[in-house]
């Protein structure tokens, strides 16, 4: 047996395959049509003077618009943060073995998913009619503070509260799906190590649930950013309200809607990037090696060009020492 040579990987076999690719005439036709349509649209937008691109450029960085952008961002952050916190709370409640706690969560979701968010915002806006003053204290017990409702519910608070409470209902379903997606064995392993239920949820289950929770949450946040434009109905100070205010004075509604749209596009694009990196963070351990980010790819590309001379080694025309000196002379 020992005389039989071990089979070694052969490196002298036939060379790599270089086959002629299949032709796809259909794809070429489709590409031509897409390109033609794109050119037609751009041409129409550029040559139709009624678009008023000059006015668009003029208002794009108008201070009323930019402060509207800031309010829109603030509203999005406030409402989405409230939604996420509520969502986690409601999801954990929903999974509670206590039927009253789980039922309470179910009822909340049923109510807030079942009514239009616009109705909810208008409702909060008019809350003063229902409760002229708001008291803080223990139910049926002593009261500590009384506040006039009309002075409390500013347009900002109305919209943030309305959108946030509504978002909580949707986020709870997303979080619940994430929690359920984590293997039961993870909980068992954590419990067997002596962790309490709360520690298990916080340290083991939720971080893993994040992989499932983040993509739809990104979706929700992008949707939230645009839904803040409903602040328009309660005279908010957000991006769309600001644009409409200007349009109401200068009668150029199209130009200002374009301005608002450009800003909404910029903001959602920023959210795309944020979501991408958040997803990568929570993908730790899930795949053997994550593909490089676009930034890493660019950096690697630049460095690989710059470092090429090193491959020549110390005997190359650019020795390591010389190279460093060259750098310092410059």
């Amino acid at each position: 047996m020992s005389d039989v040579p071990l089979s070694a990987p052969d490196s002298h076999g036939p060379e790599d395959i270089e086959a002629v690719a299949v032709r796809h005439p259909g794809r070429w036709v489709a590409s031509a049509i897409v390109l033609l349509l794109a050119v037609a649209i751009v041409n129409s937008m550029a040559t139709n003077p009624r678009f008023g691109w000059g006015q668009v450029g003029h208002f794009l960085f108008d201070h009323r618009i930019t402060s509207g952008v800031v309010v829109t961002i603030e509203l999005t952050v406030a409402a989405q943060a409230l939604g996420i916190v509520l969502g986690v709370l409601l999801a954990v409640m929903r999974l509670s073995p206590n039927p009253l706690v789980a039922g309470g969560s179910w009822l909340y979701v049923w109510f807030f998913r079942g009514t239009p968010v616009l109705v909810q915002i208008l409702f909060w806006y008019n809350i003063g009619a229902l409760y002229p003053s708001i008291h803080l204290g223990i139910p049926f017990g002593p009261q500590f503070v009384a506040i006039n409702a009309n002075s409390l519910v500013t347009p900002f608070l109305t919209v943030a509260l309305g959108l946030g409470l509504n978002e909580g209902a949707y986020m709870s379903e997303i979080v619940r799906a994430g929690i359920i997606s984590v293997d039961e064995g993870q909980t068992e392993a954590a419990l067997s190590l002596g962790m309490t239920r709360l520690q298990t949820m916080r340290r083991i289950v939720l971080p893993q649930a994040m992989r499932v929770i983040i993509p739809p949450t990104g979706n929700e946040t992008i949707s939230m950013l645009k839904t803040t434009s409903l602040a328009f109905v309660v005279a908010g100070a957000d991006l769309l309200s600001a644009a409409e205010n200007i349009a109401g004075a200068n009668f150029e509604p199209i130009q200002l809607l374009i301005v608002a749209s450009i800003w909404y596009l910029v903001l959602t694009s920023v959210l795309y990037v944020g979501q991408y990196y958040l997803e990568r963070y929570y993908a730790r351990g899930s795949s053997r090696e994550l593909p490089p980010t676009p930034l890493q790819r660019i950096r690697r590309g630049v460095f690989s060009v710059r470092h090429d001379p090193v491959a020549l080694g110390p005997l190359g025309p650019l020795g390591g020492v010389e190279r460093h000196e060259g750098g310092s002379i410059r």
Binding site: D183, Q186, E188, A189, A190, I204, Q208, G285, S286
Partner: peptide, 8 residues
């Protein structure tokens, strides 16, 4: 099934 924490 080992049940190691995959994110750690």
């Amino acid at each position: 099934r080992f049940n190691l924490f995959p994110h750690k």
